[in-house]
Computed example of a mutant assay.
Amino acid sequence: MTGRTRLTTTETVRDERSWLFTVRDQYDELDEVILVPCEEREVGEATADSADRQAADSADSGVEAWVNRCTHEAQRLDRGFGAAMRDGQIICPKHGSMFDACSGYCDNGDAADTTLPAVEIAVEDGAVYLTDDGYEFVHEGSIEDGGAEGGENGAGDADESQDDDDDMPSSTSHIGF
């Protein structure tokens, strides 16, 4: 769907601790993706099998891209004000499951033994590019931040997402942020 779209810089991702953007998938549906900093791993350190491809491609980049949903109940990890992160892990705001920022793998909580869906990116000279053929860049920020653009090819997509968030229960996590 896309060739290569410049998103932001690695410096911005590191400074903000996450960077949210909206994409359109091959089914013309809007979705959200987060970029997160990934600290370099030591040689030989294991990663989840499903994320090895992406980890190898961007191991030197220090940035990884994940679909912005917990694998447990599709809770948004970044709800528009940054993803909660601690010690190199992305924290689900609903139940507190923690996903490794480099591999996307979760080994605890309700999402244990699952891996966040990866989105292909490339990093060159400090710039981060979307290179995943399954996604087309729409805009920076959440689906709701797109206003009229969000409903352009599928009227109501942005409104439906907003309504879904209103129905979501507040966090039940015992972890404070």
Rank of each mutant, 00 (worst) to 15 (best):
G88R: 05
K94E: 13
G109F: 01
D100M: 01
S97P: 03
A112Q: 13
N108K: 04
A127Q: 13
V123R: 11
T115G: 08
D110P: 12
A112R: 15
A127V: 13
M98A: 09
G88N: 09
D100F: 00
I91P: 01
I91M: 06
P117M: 10
R79T: 08
V123Q: 08
D107W: 04
M85L: 12
A118N: 11
A83T: 00
G109V: 02
P117W: 03
V128E: 12
P117L: 11
R86K: 15
V123H: 11
M85A: 07
A83Y: 00
N108C: 13
A101M: 04
I91C: 06
T115Q: 12
M98N: 00
A122Q: 10
A118L: 00
A112I: 01
A112T: 09
R86D: 07
A127N: 15
V119W: 04
E120P: 07
F81E: 14
H95L: 02
A112L: 10
H95K: 01
D107F: 03
S103I: 02
C102S: 08
A127G: 10
C92D: 04
Y129I: 15
L130A: 12
A112N: 12
D125E: 13
D125Y: 06
Y105M: 07
G88H: 06
C92M: 04
D113Q: 14
L130Y: 12
G104T: 09
T115F: 10
R79V: 09
D78A: 00
G80C: 04
S103P: 05
G88W: 05
V119Q: 02
I91S: 01
R79E: 13
L116N: 05
D110M: 12
A83G: 04
A83I: 00
G96P: 02
G96Q: 03
P117K: 12
Q89P: 05
G88S: 06
V119A: 10
S97A: 05
E120T: 14
G88E: 01
K94L: 12
A118C: 13
S97V: 04
A111W: 03
K94R: 15
S103N: 11
H95R: 01
M85G: 10
G80S: 06
V128I: 11
Y129Q: 15
M85D: 02
C92R: 00
N108T: 07
V128F: 05
A84Y: 00
G82L: 00
G104E: 02
K94N: 13
N108A: 11
L130G: 14
L116I: 01
D100G: 01
N108L: 06
D100Q: 05
V123C: 12
E120Q: 14
S97W: 02
R86F: 07
R86E: 11
D110K: 14
D110N: 11
D125L: 13
Q89W: 03
A84G: 05
D87C: 10
F81K: 10
C106M: 04
A118P: 06
